[in-house]
């Protein structure tokens, strides 16, 4: 996440005091809502955008998810899972609500530019590769895409995915492996 240090301090000052209660670990800083926000904002956005495939809707839902998390921050229970799993659960619910409301799938308006600047040959090869993967993703069911989004856009561990989806860790791992194999076959075909 790109943020100026001044901005980060502002957020810290505004949120740190009332949000210390969101302690999930021994480290007070990492337990604060601000720390969670900083750690997970781009990943939450990426997950929601991957699921909704609509940039404007993804922004609304991301904002909604953080707002809900902020208001429900005292309801977080460390025994139920990590803060990330809790936050992604909220984001997923908000995204599914949005999907249900719209009852349609919208594609992303545009893809973001690559942060790294590869050479011309590399860029062409990369673009082709991305197009192949995107086409393979389209062949997945929505549930499988949800799993892929949690893993690769959300950057969650298998245990956190299991907590978010309410599955056992081994079950989540098996499903993930099966989905990736399916994706690989789709890429090769």
């Amino acid at each position: 996440m790109k943020r100026s240090s001044g901005r980060t301090r502002d957020v810290n000052e505004a949120l740190a005091e009332p949000l210390q209660a969101l302690a999930g670990s021994a480290d007070a800083d990492s337990g604060s809502f601000d720390a969670l926000y900083r750690r997970s904002f781009p990943r939450v956005y990426a997950y929601v955008a991957s699921l909704l495939r609509d940039r404007a809707a993804a922004e609304d839902v991301t904002a909604q998810a953080f707002e809900r998390a902020y208001r429900k921050r005292h309801g977080y229970r460390p025994v139920r899972g990590t803060q990330e799993a809790w936050l992604f659960g909220i984001a997923r619910n908000a995204a599914l609500d949005e999907l249900r409301r719209r009852k349609r799938r919208a594609s992303l308006e545009s893809d973001p530019e690559d942060l790294a600047a590869p050479g011309l040959d590399d860029r062409a090869e990369l673009a082709l590769r991305r197009e192949t993967v995107r086409a393979a993703l389209d062949q997945l069911s929505p549930r499988e895409r949800d799993l892929v989004a949690l893993k690769f856009a959300g950057g969650l561990s298998n245990a956190e995915i299991a907590q978010t989806l309410g599955l056992s860790e081994s079950n989540a791992g098996t499903k993930l492996h099966r989905t990736i194999e399916k994706l690989r076959e789709a890429c090769q075909s």
């Binding site: 943020r3 502002d10 991957s50 940039r55 904002a63 690769f152 856009a153 990736i180 994706l183």
Partner: peptide, 28 residues
Amino acid sequence: LALALADLSPAPEEQFEQALIARAEAGF
């Protein structure tokens, strides 16, 4: 394949990020 999938992840726009930070500062 995993790296390509991770690479596909959309990034938030700067403007949205700033707006959300402002809302967070104000306590949503």
